[in-house]
């Protein structure tokens, strides 16, 4: 691992996680009217555990035809959301909850960007020495 990889701490990983999650939430919102669609979301705890465990705990495949391990993404599993109310067409997307989660996620993405910007500024300062 080079110096630059560690210089930014967890922020790059967080950004990737936030961007993956925003796509998942967008897919939920897009399917808000699809009968039988089950809303899914990333679980922060399992994503965090994955990040801490690093690459040792995940299985590597050495051949493109190896069968991948199901449900083991880079950020852990996506889990089905438990709906708070029952809908007759079996759809578990609750627009308000998804919207709230999406904007929360966007906010956290922005804060990670902010942290990254801070680190970049510090590095610049160290390089220029001004």
């Amino acid at each position: 691992m080079s110096l630059l990889d560690t210089a930014f701490g967890v922020s790059p990983l967080t950004l990737r996680y936030r961007s993956e999650r925003s796509a998942q939430l967008a897919a939920n919102i897009a399917n808000a009217a699809t009968p039988g669609y089950l809303a899914k979301d990333y679980d922060f705890d399992s994503a965090l555990r994955h990040a801490i465990a690093g690459s040792e705990s995940t299985l590597h495949s050495e051949h493109p035809h190896h069968i991948p391990v199901q449900g083991q993404g880079e950020f852990g599993d996506t889990l089905y959301r438990v709906p708070t109310k029952a809908v007759s067409n079996g759809n578990t997307v609750e627009e308000e909850i998804e919207q709230a989660a999406f904007s929360e996620n966007a906010l956290r993405y922005q804060s990670s960007l902010q942290f990254l910007n801070g680190s970049i500024r510090s590095l610049r300062l160290a390089i220029k020495g001004e």
């Binding site: 998942q24 897009a30 699809t34 009968p35």
Partner: peptide
């Protein structure tokens, strides 16, 4: 209209790529 999710097969199973 009959809505169905657009599924995209990935390493982690089916990923929803829209509607």
């Amino acid at each position: 209209p009959i809505f169905t999710p657009i599924l995209d097969a990935t390493m982690q199973g089916d990923e929803v790529m829209g509607v």
